[in-house]
């Protein structure tokens, strides 16, 4: 197993404090819903709002979603947002953002890489973060939207953001990463990008998620539930044929320097289901 630790930004809204922690022991949870579930089990109790990406986000096509995990009325909800958030979060250098507590006054979070600024409502959201490298999750009276277009399914984030007294969250990722084996990486990247015939969605010219050429009709609405490995990576469900293929996933992770074995990838869903069984997911139709 690779020694790369999972890096998590913890934000306490009640105290307006934040802290970055590395978790070498969580590497086996890969990312996305797998990592989110483990964080919820170890640190969440009933109070968590976890945004997480996987190791392929920003690095490979169709790995374009961000996992969002929270508890709503006893049920664990896992939803997957499109847009550009996954690349921004990935390029902060973080694997996840774990938000807990409730802001005393309506609040705006301005996250630039590993730093957080707590801003009052009234701050010009457009002036926060870095243009071209930020995503804005914004709440109005009726809906929560990402970059003024993308949403979770059924406007699912609206309620939790209201509960947290969180008016907006701006996430800027400005880090860059080297690839040791560029030739192999680029070959693999091109091979995956060319596999549009394996996607279960059509091109539609709509605003697209980062790293996806499809601009499909469903980019706006995001996803609920689905394949555990795909949503731990965190890839699009329409690319399940590509990212549920253990050999392909192994090659992608391997070229980026992650040391996961085929067996670890194959056994990964069971590992996550074991965590979920301890987490009391409640009655939910999708996780």
């Amino acid at each position: 197993m690779s020694s790369l630790a999972k890096k998590v930004l913890y934000i306490d809204l009640s105290r307006q404090e934040f802290e970055v922690k590395s978790h070498p022991d969580m590497n086996e949870f890969i990312g996305g819903v797998g990592l989110g579930a483990k964080l919820a089990l170890d640190f969440g109790g009933d109070d968590f709002l976890i945004f997480s990406t996987g190791p392929l986000n920003g690095f490979f096509p169709f790995a374009s979603k961000t996992s969002v995990l929270f508890r709503d009325g006893g049920k664990i909800q896992d939803t997957y947002l499109g847009g550009s958030l996954s690349t921004r979060l990935r390029f902060t250098g973080l694997d996840a953002i774990f938000i807990h507590g409730v802001a005393k006054e309506p609040m705006v979070l301005d996250i630039v890489d590993e730093k957080v600024s707590f801003k009052p409502v009234g701050e010009d959201v457009g002036s926060l973060g870095l243009p071209g490298k930020r995503s804005v999750l914004d709440l109005d009276e009726n809906r929560a939207s990402l970059d003024a277009y993308f949403e979770g399914p059924n406007n699912i984030l609206h309620k939790i953001l209201i509960q947290k007294n969180l008016k907006a969250m701006i996430i800027t990722g400005s880090k860059t990463f080297d690839i040791p084996d560029r030739e192999r990486y680029e070959e693999l990247y091109a091979k995956i990008l060319a596999r549009t015939e394996d996607l279960t969605v059509e091109k539609s010219g709509k605003p697209s998620c980062s790293g996806c050429p499809m601009g499909c009709l469903y980019s706006k609405t995001g996803e609920l539930g689905g394949d555990i490995l795909v949503h731990s990576l965190v890839a699009c469900t329409f690319a399940e044929k590509i990212y549920s293929d253990t050999s392909m996933v192994f090659s992608c992770l391997n070229v980026l320097g992650y040391g996961y074995t085929h067996e670890e990838i194959e056994n990964f869903p069971k590992l996550v289901y074991d965590v979920l069984s301890k987490l009391d997911v409640g009655t939910t139709s999708h996780i």
Partner: peptide
């Protein structure tokens, strides 16, 4: 459509993955 494949392509040509300095 905002997919940023062009941004990621030029960054790869510059030997990096990310948005900074594109």
């Amino acid at each position: 459509i905002g997919c940023e494949l062009c941004v990621l392509e030029v960054q790869r040509q510059l030997g990096k993955v990310g948005l900074e300095g594109s």
